[in-house]
């Protein structure tokens, strides 16, 4: 009986300690992120980069959040950048930010305290162009010293997010599915 009470007391203390300490300590913030998207068709390749991605990684719960300022995507050609921002495509004035909120589903596979590369699956909601979709993607987490890097690669089908173009040049020059890669760096505290 004493032993049981003791166990309960210990787990109670542990639970309270975790509850109070983990949310502040384990949520890492990255303001140094990079997202690239790449579209390939027989006619041309289009690539754009965004270095203004803000994201958080909660090493205790496995929650990841990305916030992307859509007007920060830079294209090689000014005209392409204008088209991308316009009402016909991503309408970035109306939808200035895209967001992904997800969960690492196999958090057990990662040890944030041990240097190494870990493959994970992230499931969550992508909000782009005012459309929210549930997606599941793979990612790689690299732990090196006090630095954690999260890299993802996914394919987005533009029609899923109501970025549609029927006739004309864009329908032949932009791929229906674009490849999106991201990299975010976090620094562990302490």
């Amino acid at each position: 009986m004493k032993k049981l009470l003791f166990t309960i007391a210990i787990s109670g203390i542990l639970a309270i300690t975790t509850a109070f300490t983990s949310p502040t300590v384990s949520k890492l913030v990255s303001k140094a992120g990079h997202i690239n998207f790449f579209s390939h068709t027989a006619i041309e390749d289009i690539s754009a980069d965004n270095f203004k991605v803000v994201s958080t990684l909660n090493t205790a719960t496995g929650e990841v959040v990305y916030s992307v300022p859509m007007q920060s995507f830079e294209f090689e050609k000014a005209l392409m950048q204008k088209h991308y921002n316009s009402k016909k495509f991503l309408d970035t004035k109306t939808y200035p930010k895209a967001k992904f909120k997800g969960q690492i589903t196999n958090l057990d596979a990662v040890n944030f305290e041990v240097d190494g590369t870990y493959n994970v699956t992230i499931a969550g909601e992508m909000n782009l162009h005012g459309v929210t979709k549930v997606i599941t993607e793979t990612a790689t987490i690299t732990v090196l010293g006090n630095k954690i890097t999260v890299e993802t690669k996914m394919n987005l089908t533009l029609a899923d997010y109501k970025v549609a173009f029927k006739g004309g040049k864009p329908s032949t020059n932009i791929a229906k599915t674009i490849e999106v890669t991201s990299k975010s760096e976090y620094t562990k505290e302490g």
Partner: peptide, 28 residues
Amino acid sequence: NDKYLEAEGESKIIIVSGTIASISEDLN
């Protein structure tokens, strides 16, 4: 957003004044 952002991404050009809180470098 309505005031500062433009539809084709050519948003407003602004001069802001303030106190520097940090200087860092991005992945670019």
